[in-house]
Nucleic acid binder design. Structure first.
Lengths: 197, 197, 197, 197
DNA sequence: ACCTTCGGGACACCCCGTTGCT
DNA sequence: AGCAACGGGGTGTCCCGAAGGT
């Protein structure tokens, strides 16, 4: 998950912002290059100067959102730790889960859209996003262990993977059956904790 | 999940079979109508006589695979029950999980592909597939309860939904990171057992 | 050089006619698909229904012109034979040479344009056109031999190939240096006659 | 055919060398500016600093090859003259013909490619190349006349033009029907000599 | 002089879906 | 039940220009 430097370029940032807007409005499949051209004011050549394909554009947008989310996450953890308040990991991670369940969120839409992708670059981005989430989870779990909230017997790595699996599964469920069978986060936590001790 | 009668038509069955082949070979996105036309020998008009869009074709193929899988599942349960042997639900459900993790499987590819879909018909099919899986899970859990393998305190419905979420999540994980963090079936069984008590 | 039947379709004939017009006006490279669409009133899809690529369209146009020219040639020979007049082969072949030297002629432009082509279909068409010309030459030479105008010692096949080479060479020269070193038809006749004895 | 001085610049020479390589490998049409950029390591701007268009680049490459060939030709003639050996024009000119028949040769490919060109600069280069070849032929024929190998009655200019026409024609034939109807050089010489005396 | 980054737009081709005829 | 003909939108490739840095 490197080369975040690209995201500094104002034209490129604009390109990403517009793309995100459009995806939120009309979804990935319906967002055409022409739409992007029209709203950014950029030409096809300009866009293809920054990316190699529409899918890569979507992929980079996803990556940027993940990167951005990471910043928020880190700040939240730091704040919780430094404030001296009781460390409440469930709130932070809960937000993460909540976001992941928001079907309209552009990042989620892109994620799902890119899953059926053969493109190598995109595959790499997707894999990076997964790794990134897992590592973040590990970090958070470890922090919980240090504070005694999570039993030290728990296999952190396995637990993190399980978190990811559930997180992704929830996303899918929310697409398939948005308003039925709402799952409470506390149920999942209960389940996971029980399973892992 | 009705109108399975359509699947009787030999031309349509041929159409589905060819489509499945192609998807297994090249993936959903790369499978074009032209490919299908060439290999079936059918013209565009003939294909559109059976379906309204390519996505619907994919959707119906997915549905047919689910229906087919159901038959196998029911037989397995019946066989286990009638054989007088110890009821071994984990084997059956394990197969299900295993299948869902097979990234090459056409049904899985279609499922993922159709997730990023706006089409109403397709949404319905996807929802049906979800419901179908959930109901199957409920049936299986209830059967377990009746035999005393599963404690009666378990909320069958909630548990079935959890299973679905977990199943879908595994599928995603397998696409994103196929060879890392492999989750063993035995681990899954362990968790399931623990969570059920 | 088969499947002349395609040329019966009125839409396709129109397509060819318009393409020929455009090439005569602006040359091959400058004739775009949009030009053809605009003037034929056909859509992109309609055009690609008949041909697989622009180059193939050009190739088929060339083929049709050669076919058409053949008809004229055959008639001319028949007329000469049947009229009882002295057989004057040079006039007919002379016309051929003259046509080949006309740089503006669409067929010539296409021919030159397609020479730098990798496309397999196009290569085949070009080769067919060559063969076709050679065979026509052979026929004509043989007919001359039967009438005693051409000595029987002449190697008909070799001579036909020489004619082709010469014909193509003239075409090139006319593109490269249109107004210099003009080669008079009478000179060509003189050479041909001398070389034949 | 002036300004050979440009060819001294090492970057430009590199540019030409790479372009020649690529054309030999993939042909003119398939050789894109991007290919050239990638292999030279030069940027678009750098390339356009030396040439005004891709066609001009190809044209200059052709010119450089012709210039280079000329050096070899002159040396060969001088060597033949000075060595005191019997002047053997057929060998030298034969090499020329042989080269022209090599379809893979980059110079030939470019030549054919540029024929269908409207660009003024390119037209000029092509014309120059023609003139250059003709003059070389005249020089050689005159030398042959002085030595009595060629009858003095032959119109040198006309003969040179005929040579060019045949040379170009052979090139075309070789593209169209590479392995059929191989023409022996001696046949052409025989024919030309007969025709011109 | 030499080279780069950024940007523009024309173009070819692919691909899905519709229509009317048999 | 099946098909040829057709429409037209979408993507990515490609050549090139402009502005500016070294």
């Amino acid at each position: 998950m490197a080369e975040a430097s690209v995201y500094k370029n104002p034209t490129f940032r604009h390109l990403l912002a517009v793309t995100e807007e459009l995806i939120s409005e009309k979804g990935c499949r319906s967002t055409t290059l022409k739409d992007i051209m029209d709203r950014t004011g950029l030409s096809k050549g300009a866009i293809y100067h920054y990316v190699d394909s529409k899918d890569e554009l979507f992929g980079l947008l996803l990556q940027s959102k993940v990167l951005e989310f990471n910043g928020q996450f880190e700040s939240a953890v730091d704040a919780a730790v430094n404030s001296g308040y009781e460390f409440s990991p469930f709130e932070v991670i809960g937000k993460n889960f909540a976001l992941r369940q928001d079907h309209q969120d552009a990042a989620n839409q892109i994620f799902v859209y890119l899953l059926s992708q053969e493109n190598e670059k995109v595959t790499k981005i997707l894999h990076d996003v997964y790794q990134f989430g897992k590592e973040k989870g590990i970090k958070w779990l470890r922090s919980g262990q240090e504070r005694g909230v999570i039993p030290s017997s728990v296999d952190i790595n396995k637990m993190a993977v399980l978190f990811m699996v559930f997180s992704y599964g929830l996303r899918m469920k929310n697409i398939l059956a948005p308003n039925e069978d709402t799952i409470e986060l506390r149920d999942i936590f209960k389940w996971l904790l029980k399973s892992l001790t």
